[in-house]
């Protein structure tokens, strides 16, 4: 058992089983409360809010790395599976219909936004890292500007060498007219990760077109230049991918904050006006 839990697949199976049991227990409990004419909304709502707060603690846990609060990966697993349970509990609480009140509708929208952004984030964290690894060298996000600078320095050194050694300006002209702009170019916020990069293809195509004008030395340098161009493409992929992995949290976490506040007010109002029925 311990061994099974040490690998990723075993952990997922374990958490899935635990979550499934918890989901069945939640459905059963909500049904019992409903059938027994007990305040089901009170209990499901209270538990839902507690789960949301517990999920939000994951972010707090990341800010307190020095505390012995188990590993962050364990928290992430907890966050993922409890998040699914929270979605189930939300539907049980709302009675599987869209709420009618304005505040509750806003709350439901925020909850759904948090849930959907969480699911999207989960999908991104499952999909992007593998692609990034296959794309090329895994880079630290914060180092990417520096590496871009390094590439530019290296390419400029290469072009200077080409000018000096081949006594031809073909590569120099290529750099000034095409390559410099490409190296300085950064993918936009809406750039698709890992998709075909037209700019890269265009640069490579232009370099290939110039190949017939290169002398042997220039051709050697052009081949080396091509490697730097590919390195720039990997850099862009890393940037887009890692940026996505960070930017979805710009939606998920602030929305979670709103959710907690709105949920608190909703709970107070509900308790005050309905005693949870």
């Amino acid at each position: 058992m311990d061994k099974a839990l040490t690998n990723l697949g075993g952990r997922r199976v374990f958490w899935c089983l635990v979550s499934a049991c918890a989901a069945v227990a939640l459905i059963l409990a909500a049904s019992v409360l409903c059938v027994a004419l007990l305040p089901a909304a009170l209990w499901t709502g209270t538990l839902l809010y507690a789960l949301v707060v517990a999920l939000a603690l994951f972010n707090a846990r990341k800010k307190l790395p020095f505390l012995p609060l188990t590993r962050a990966s364990t928290w992430l697993q907890f966050h993922v599976y409890v998040g699914w349970l929270a979605v189930l509990l939300f539907f049980l609480h709302a009675g599987f219909h869209w709420p009618h009140g304005r505040l509750t509708q806003v709350l439901a929208v925020v909850f759904m936004f948090v849930a959907i952004s969480g699911v999207v984030g989960l999908a991104l964290t499952r999909w992007i890292p593998g692609r990034l690894t296959r794309s090329g060298e895994a880079l630290t996000y914060e180092r990417i500007p520096e590496i871009r600078g390094d590439i530019r320095v290296k390419v400029e050194a290469l072009i200077t060498a080409a000018d000096r050694e081949s006594e031809s300006s073909t590569l120099g002209d290529f750099y000034l007219n095409h390559l410099l702009e490409y190296i300085n170019w950064r993918p936009g916020i809406l750039a698709t990760p890992f998709g075909d990069q037209p700019r890269h293809r265009e640069i490579v195509g232009t370099l290939s077109t110039l190949d017939r004008y290169f002398n042997p030395r220039e051709r050697e340098l052009a081949a080396e230049l091509r490697e730097w161009i590919d390195a720039k493409r990997n850099l862009d992929n890393q940037l887009v991918g890692q940026r996505l992995l960070k930017l979805w949290l710009f939606l998920h976490i602030p929305a979670s904050c709103s959710l907690i506040l709105l949920g608190l007010v909703h709970g107070l109002i509900a308790l005050r006006y309905t005693r949870g029925f």
Partner: peptide, 25 residues
């Protein structure tokens, strides 16, 4: 987001249309 939410709630509960927003349906 927190500030916006709090502001939103303050406007709701401090305004004349508070009842409409509290109304659960």
């Amino acid at each position: 987001a927190g500030t916006l939410t709090l502001g939103f709630l303050l406007v709701l509960f401090g305004g004349s249309r508070r009842q409409r927003w509290i109304d659960p349906g």
